[in-house]
């Protein structure tokens, strides 16, 4: 067996992507659409884009490391991908000022996507901007003939993000707020566990048994992982850890798993989506 000469291999490169649309959704949220036909065709739900942002103090004004954003949607027909993000730090403030026509330096798609179980009802559990990957995943689930349920949580009604996008993508959406200003008064984990338990008590879901997919604050996902373990529900989580390179060389974003070989896995390559059982939650 002989390998082709290295120079003949196709190589990846950061892409120059034009901003096609950029919407202010209110509440500090933005919806950014990039013209990216190749990314739109290749991307899978759960993958992310690594965006070079300005606003830094480096020699060229760029931040020293890229910023990772979940792919919130991909439209292969229009050749676009979209990001849903919250404006809060240097990178996202700079990003929020980009106008249609401007070109961004983006590495995408990166990371390991969700593995959608075709035999179970998809149940999405999102906290804050954790809804982003589920818009894309809801669309993909509907394409595969599945009927996804989405549970979205926030501290208060004003911070509930992206529910309308989830509904538009074909998910049935229920919301929870800690202060009860919208939907269920309590945590989204309490809401989803109660809903699934009640459904089970009433004779099970109308369709197949549930498979859960979650993205949100660590405490939310740790609580959900415990509940899923107790009920025997499969759970995939999309994690966010401080990331530098996004391609697996810096080992910044590692996630601890069960002790043993490969104890730490890279959130950017082996993740961001992990089976909840492969993550040490403590």
């Amino acid at each position: 067996m002989s390998l082709p000469p290295p120079a003949a291999r196709p190589r990846r490169a950061p892409l120059a992507l034009r901003v096609a649309a950029h919407e202010d959704l209110g509440g500090g949220l933005r919806w950014l659409t990039l013209a990216a036909p190749d990314v739109a065709a290749a991307a899978e739900p759960g993958q992310f884009a690594h965006v070079r942002c300005g606003g830094g103090l480096g020699p060229d004004g760029a931040l020293g490391t890229r910023r990772a954003y979940s792919l919130a949607d991909a439209d292969p027909d229009r050749g676009t991908v979209s990001l849903l993000y919250r404006v809060w730090g240097r990178g996202s403030v700079w990003l929020s000022q980009r106008r249609p026509g401007e070109v961004l330096d983006v590495l995408a798609p990166l990371g390991t996507p969700f593995r959608l179980d075709p035999h179970r009802t998809p149940v999405f559990v999102a906290g804050g901007t954790g809804v982003a990957p589920f818009i894309f995943l809801a669309r993909r689930a509907r394409q595969k003939g599945l009927r996804p349920l989405a549970f979205v949580g926030a501290r208060t009604a004003a911070e509930l993000a992206g529910g309308e996008f989830l509904a538009a993508a074909g998910a049935e959406v229920a919301v929870a707020t800690d202060d009860g200003t919208a939907g269920f008064a309590g945590t989204v984990v309490d809401l989803v566990v109660r809903a699934l338990e009640e459904t089970a008590a009433a004779g099970g879901l109308a369709g197949p048994s549930p498979a859960l997919y979650a993205c949100g604050p660590h405490a939310m996902m740790a609580a959900l992982a415990a509940a899923c373990a107790a009920h025997g529900w499969p759970l995939q989580v999309s994690l966010e850890t401080p990331m530098a390179c996004g391609i697996g060389i810096c080992l910044s974003c590692t996630v601890p798993g069960p002790r043993g070989p490969g104890f730490y896995r890279r959130c950017c390559v082996e993740g961001p989506v992990f089976d909840a059982r492969e993550v040490a939650w403590e």
């Binding site: 830094g56 103090l57 480096g58 020293g64 490391t65 401080p242 530098a244 810096c250 590692t254």
Partner: peptide, 11 residues
């Protein structure tokens, strides 16, 4: 972790 933090012109 966290294992890295970005600083002005550095990591």
């Amino acid at each position: 972790g966290p294992r890295t933090v970005e600083t002005p012109s550095g990591l």
